[in-house]
């Protein structure tokens, strides 16, 4: 009875940003090597409140308000990590991550390799990303492909409170560096019941969110909202769409995608990021390489455009829509 009660007590109803907070808190509580650092994450609890209450609970030595310096945040995380700590750094917005790129690319992602395993970087760099919230300039881009190109790195993107919780725990526990991108458009979109007892989800694998036989819809992050809506509309048209949340865009679990496409023969890839050189291009190339004989229609991409993310008045024209996804799927289904 007591056990049941305890388990019951861990059930919480949270949105995505609260799930992030829960995961951080769990790990701070249970692993004393974990520490958080970033701008405004302490007293202020983070500009999106992802770290709300954590500094008062775990102290300012472990929940560190850093000076306004992204190179420092990334570089310092490397120093902490090679000393055996597990830093979870927040970059306030993805738009400010680029000065940290040198440390991610030249140092964190190659420290294990350079030293033949002598030094490692078990660190996480979290950053809210993506458009659709009418934010100021430089606050809406989706540039995950830049990170997906870096060997030795993991790039993880949750699309629901439950996956945010489980994947963030996995990212913190992973012995290698992880860039964890949080789709801020869906930070507070929906609440989900989850069991806050520290259970991680696997990295490096896709999640199949909906089964279907007719067409595969592949996406990640906030675009899964539109993708799932499109699947619903397609269902009304009598089309059974399988929906895959890639979740770990690096390394990429092509096995799940290939298995699905071998079944359906049709595939649409949906991402908010600009099209050229996006992760969709990689998925598409691999489908052409390994699933050509299963394909009944050309693989299509429904993506953001190859232009600068517009300021918010034109933002909605940039974002892929449910209609675009349904149209692409309908077109794919027209092939015999």
């Amino acid at each position: 009875m007591t056990l049941l009660k305890t388990t019951e007590m861990n059930m919480v109803e949270v949105n995505l940003v609260e799930a992030v907070n829960r995961a951080l808190s769990w790990e701070l509580e249970h692993d004393h090597e974990v520490l958080l650092l970033g701008e405004d994450i302490g007293v202020n609890g983070g500009v999106f409140r992802a770290t709300d209450g954590l500094q008062s609970r775990y102290g300012s030595e472990r929940v560190i308000d850093t000076p306004l310096a992204e190179t420092l945040i990334a570089g310092m995380s490397i120093g902490l990590a090679v000393q055996g700590l597990k830093p979870v750094a927040e970059i306030q917005f993805m738009g400010f991550i680029y000065s940290a790129l040198e440390n991610i690319l030249n140092h964190a992602s190659r420290m294990r390799n350079r030293t033949r395993g002598r030094l490692t970087c078990p660190m996480v760099l979290r950053a809210p990303y993506g458009g659709g919230i009418h934010a100021p300039e430089h606050h809406s881009e989706s540039t995950e492909a830049i990170f997906a190109h870096i060997p030795g790195l993991r790039v993880v993107i949750p699309s629901s409170p439950g996956r945010a919780y489980g994947l963030l725990l996995a990212a913190i526990r992973d012995p290698d560096p992880v860039v964890f991108l949080e789709p801020k458009r869906i930070y507070r979109l929906q609440k989900e019941r989850l069991n806050d007892k520290g259970e991680a989800l696997p990295l490096d694998v896709c999640f199949t969110l909906r089964d279907g036989e007719d067409i595969t819809l592949v996406s990640w992050g906030a675009m899964l909202v539109e993708t799932l809506q499109a699947a619903e509309e397609l269902a009304h048209l009598g089309v059974a769409a399988e929906v895959i949340d890639v979740a770990s865009i690096k390394p990429l679990d092509m096995k799940t995608i290939l298995t699905s496409v071998e079944k359906t023969g049709r595939c649409i890839i949906i991402h908010e990021a600009a099209r050229t050189g996006g992760v969709g291009a990689e998925i598409s190339a691999q489908l052409a390489e390994y699933a050509l004989t299963s394909l009944l229609a050309p693989v299509q991409r429904v993506t953001g455009y190859d232009t600068v993310m517009p300021l918010y008045r034109l933002e909605n024209y940039y974002m892929p829509t449910v209609k675009q996804i349904v149209t692409a799927a309908t077109k794919a289904l027209e092939y015999a």
Binding site: V82, Q83, H107, R118
Partner: peptide, 29 residues
Amino acid sequence: MDYQYVRQDLPICVPIASQTCHAVGVAYA
């Protein structure tokens, strides 16, 4: 770079000045 002694020393840093921030993390730890 897999030094058999002083196992915690950082390997030499080729990009200029990056190790300054790494050292901050080491010292903080």
